[in-house]
Design a binder for these strands. Structure first.
Lengths: 284, 284
DNA sequence: AGCTCTTATGAATCATTGA
DNA sequence: GTCAATGATTCATAAGAGC
């Protein structure tokens, strides 16, 4: 079996990305530092400067992404002065001018957002997962993320409804039998563009940007084994960790030394490991 | 005891809205004709012209809305050439320039989204519910839309509480344990900005744009009895019907004579009814 | 009333065909 | 060439039917 690699860089993504080769990455998945008015915060970019700050990075990402690859951007606009900021929308418009295709917007519904009350709004329990592509055709392994179908399907399939037969006959003519057999074999359905995941509550020293299920889902969907996954704002390295466990190569960048050291320690052993089995594929 | 009214207009919203007085509407809730490439469709506005088409209407809406009022816009961008259109984002940006505050974006998760399988996308199962306001302060009756807190939530809170006590104590100081106990005592919780509703499956002659629960929720949240609710693209009149049943006055506009006649027939009796009881408040 | 089982169909998207 | 119309796809829900 082939060797996996985990390349970790310490520094500014804008610069470090220049070290990566053209068309070399299969999936970019990241949750960049959110815009913030408080400058002191880690990565606190002011909402007004967010687009300007991100565009040089997305330009590099466009260069290094394979034509068949995908870029998943996890982001959500902050409330500023009682109003939602518009920098995410401005970013999408600017990235399209840069050459990106804005293929889809997935919704991450955070099921267990903590209760709270404000006079003018409710709890924010969703985030955007923006899908960008370099070309209109890209790799998407839909079968990998199928979910179990509800029980209703089996009951229905036992006695195939007359309507379904008619519906198919009227359109296709004969030969509906072929399709029906498709139905009978199937107990899994394709998912939608709404993901229901709980936010991870990790009591550890470093907080993960998102639960492992999130990168896992997109890595399954957009890559195969030994593909290369990049997170240019790796933080505690959740995306890279999941990628390696799923037999994908990983590249990560972060400007904070503590994160760099932590991820390095966690992932460098990967370099030495010859994966000879696929058993550890699923987390938990 | 007060009389309700239901004013229905036949014609172009851009023109008919001019007949309404300044600062006279408490809630505008509408689902305008979606952009469409096919011109023959009812209300088929081309994506490229959508913003230009909508702005004169939103200008009137801004004029007639009370300073304390809210505008809820149900909309979702189409896929054009394998890519999501950007006209919704452009509209938000343009409406802000017009003077609107973009307060919030609710997500309507359509549990029973349209079936289908495509090579590079999944089923679209959510729509945007954009909340715009005229002023930063507006009426919001949050207690009206509280939902029963499930047992799972209580269990979740108990688990969370220790961690959060620690986390918050370290930040804010003492006194958070009290807050947790407040939440634990409670049977009802405030909702989030994600709404889970199925699209109405009505076998009747005219289809509603959205299920009754949708306008009902926002009418509860943003109006009180005898307030005025406007739908400038009323279609089959779902919003107005719900408004009247909830003892709110209603104003509706549509350019299609069939819809006009239908809604008129359905709602005109309201003009004659003296509501002396609140029993019929809830549909079903 | 309360179940189960049956049935229709929904602001959807893509590939193909026709003008 | 571009642009517009047609057909194929197939999941979760509610209303309706039957017990």
């Amino acid at each position: 079996m082939k060797k996996l690699f985990a390349d970790i860089y310490l520094g500014d993504s804008k610069e470090k990305l220049k070290l990566l080769g053209d068309n070399s990455i299969d999936l970019i998945m990241t949750s960049p530092p959110y815009a913030d008015q408080r400058k002191s915060t880690y990565g606190g970019i002011h909402p007004d400067n967010y687009v300007e700050w991100f565009l040089p990075i997305s330009e590099q990402l466009l260069r290094i992404l394979k034509p068949s690859g995908t870029f998943i951007l996890n982001i959500k606009e902050k409330v500023v002065n009682g109003e939602r900021s518009t920098y995410v929308m401005e970013l999408i418009l600017a990235m399209r001018k840069q050459g990106w295709y804005w293929t889809e917007e997935f919704i991450w519904h955070k099921k267990n957002s903590f209760p709270g009350k404000w006079p003018n709004r409710f709890r924010d329990s969703w985030e955007r997962l923006l899908q960008f592509n370099k070309e209109k055709k890209f790799h998407m392994y839909q079968d990998e993320v199928m979910v179990p179908m509800g029980d209703w399907a089996k009951a229905r399939l036992k006695n195939l409804s007359e309507t379904d037969k008619i519906r198919d006959n009227s359109k296709v003519g004969s030969g509906f039998g072929k399709k029906i057999s498709n139905w009978l074999d199937r107990d899994m359905a394709y998912p939608t563009n709404v993901l229901h995941l709980a936010t991870e509550c990790n009591n550890k020293n470093h907080s993960a940007a998102f639960p492992q299920e999130l990168p896992q889902w997109f890595i399954k969907l957009f890559t195969k084994e030994h593909d290369v996954v990049l997170d240019p704002f790796m933080g505690s390295g959740t995306t890279l960790e999941v990628a390696n466990r799923m037999i994908r190569n990983s590249v990560g960048i972060d400007i904070v030394p503590e994160y760099y050291e932590m991820v390095k320690e966690k992932l460098i052993p990967v370099d030495l490991v010859l994966f000879e089995e696929n058993e550890k594929y699923e987390p938990k």
